[in-house]
Design a protein around this nucleic acid. Structure first.
Lengths: 346, 346
DNA sequence: TTTAGCACTCGGCATGATTGAGTGCTAATA
DNA sequence: TATTAGCACTCAATCATGCCGAGTGCTAAA
């Protein structure tokens, strides 16, 4: 069902106004806008049509109209124009990412903070899913009679290490051979996809070291997974500023759901598959955020999408603006993280 | 100014009632309690006295009385009896700490969760301040031509390691000598107290390696400090359940202050000096929590107090009960962490 | 097809009366 | 002298009431 141009314009005007004011908008308000040039009565007729088509809703007779989720969806898909960030915004973001940042945690927190303070919505950042990154080398270096250092180097130039106990009697050259064998077998594999089963496929001398292998993988995997389920949150209380949450019960329900983080983790991991995602109200899987919108974007290390981040806010969100911000922040975040690991490689 | 026994009993009755109901308590309510045996009129006289002495406050004429901060202080210091946890509570705590927990982060999160879900207040846990822990050994082990592994072992049996580049031409035995020199000099020192100045005191061959030392210390310190400023938060939205925060403005102000975490970090680091601490309303340094109470306790690794944790809630908090919980949780937390690092030593 | 006009709806707000919990004071009582 | 009953008074909370204004739908005229 295609809407004619006039209905489109009226709908857009209603959405624009509602995003700004959060109060149901009436026919007079729209009529007064210079660029429409129709009387309230005409607008009323059109509005009645739009309501019938499911784009508008009336909280009660004698109130104005409110855009429905369907309207926002149409807005995001067809009406909305790409927004441009203000100079101040661009500078703010640039500034925050040009600072010295040398801990992943810090960058993640920073991002959450920048995002929530710029958008005034609740922001969330999924920590990098390092376990999803690809292996390049495994080195095994003896450091004492019964201990060795296992070092893995990944795709993106990141290294992780871990001290492990080695079986008595294992000599340096055996260790080196094992390292090489593992490297040829598992190079290009994702760390979380390396299983015992795959190890068992290996034969010869290497196959003897199964127990040793298990311990090593567990230890390495742990140091990669480190904080991988972590969701950094910022500005959750921002939502208390929006009149749609002036009702305590609603506010509490949403805040509680956000604070739990489980749900956010679900939403964000799913969102790691698409560069940008917009979920409006009832489009959300999760019950507790069916009256909010969630907008997310992904970030990368090198060329691998490795995590996602975004905001939660009322459905009358300024989608164009938020998307523009997510774009720039995602770019900056990816750069910083990529540099961080590249540098580690040296 | 000592209160006579009867005033004491009346005050206690008022506090008990107010903690339960959060509504100003009147003379009739107290008189009806079987164990007092006085008429409302008498109680009124006593209440007037207590008000004059600063233990009670009246929100307005014709309302009942509300205990003042001073009253709670008296209650905590002199009236309150040591509370006993219910079997269910003890079991709940025990259960949560007997699970397999092998990441510090996890234990910290767990603690915050247990605390907030049991108390129904907002809970906070300061991550272990590992930089405050004492050094035992420094080992330096060559692993490649230009790289070595620096390993430190602490007091509590914890180890941390870090790969560092070594100056060209440095041989294995020189490395070992340096390690020994550093160990004798810095054993028993806190990691965050080792400065370049102290290094400069060293003389001979070792003193040549100043740059190398700097890099190493920085790298080690970073891996110890890891997450040290972190404050884990849980159940912040619990405070929305208390009628004292049914006013949106107040609720938002408090939630925002809590969410910021800076203030909590300040409060908790300070609280790491005393085993238990109770700060009632205006006793709090920080403006934003002058109408709450903060109760904290410390936890240890081995014998070293290494962090603290606690709750934030309305001043009419059930102090005795909360303190009992903090006691048991602190004990469990200390045990788990101590085991964790002891085990690492093996 | 558009618009002016009109009757109608309904939430929000100010007003005012009522209620009830609680107080302080005074005078009687033990 | 300490306690208590009685009474006048205060004040927040609650509820009914009426009014206002923003907004609608419908009809008839342009």
């Amino acid at each position: 069902m295609q809407l004619d141009a006039r209905k489109m314009r009226i709908l857009q005007a209603i959405i624009d106004d509602y995003i700004l004011t959060a109060t149901p908008v009436g026919s007079r308000t729209i009529a007064k806008r210079s660029d429409i040039g129709l009387s309230p009565a005409t607008i009323r007729n059109e509005m009645a049509d739009l309501e019938e088509l499911g784009y508008l809703e009336q909280p009660h007779t004698s109130a104005g109209r409110v855009p429905s989720d369907k309207a926002y969806r149409l807005y995001v898909n067809s009406i909305m124009q790409r927004a441009k960030l203000s100079d101040a915004e661009v500078r703010y973001i640039r500034d925050h990412y040009s600072r010295r940042l040398d801990e992943v945690d810090e960058v993640v927190k920073q991002t959450a903070w920048v995002l929530s303070s710029l958008t005034k919505y609740a922001s969330m950042v999924l920590a990098p899913q390092l376990h999803a990154i690809k292996l390049k080398y495994i080195h095994l270096v003896p450091i004492a009679e019964d201990k060795a250092l296992a070092i893995i180097v990944t795709d993106a130039g990141m290294t992780r290490d871990s001290i492990i106990r080695i079986p008595p009697g294992m000599k340096q050259d055996a260790l080196e051979r094992l390292g090489r064998a593992l490297t040829t077998r598992f190079s290009e594999c994702r760390l979380d996809e390396i299983t015992q089963a795959q190890f068992n496929e290996l034969s010869g001398e290497v196959a003897q070291q199964r127990e040793f292998f298990d311990v090593m993988m567990q230890s390495l995997r742990r140091s990669m997974t480190q904080g991988g389920r972590n969701v950094e949150l910022s500005g959750a209380t921002n939502i208390l500023n929006y009149p749609e949450y002036s009702d305590m019960e609603r506010a509490r329900a949403l805040l509680t759901a956000i604070e739990e983080k489980d749900m956010l983790y679900r939403v964000l991991t799913e969102a790691t598959n698409v560069e940008f995602s917009v979920r409006i109200g009832s489009e959300n899987e999760d019950e507790s955020i069916r009256d909010c919108s969630v907008v997310t974007a992904t970030y990368k290390i090198g060329a691998n999408p490795i995590g996602s981040f975004g905001v939660i806010g009322p459905t009358r969100m300024d989608y164009a603006h938020v998307l523009a911000m997510l774009g720039l922040i995602g770019k900056s975040l990816s750069e910083v993280l990529t540099n961080m690991f590249e540098e580690e490689r040296k």
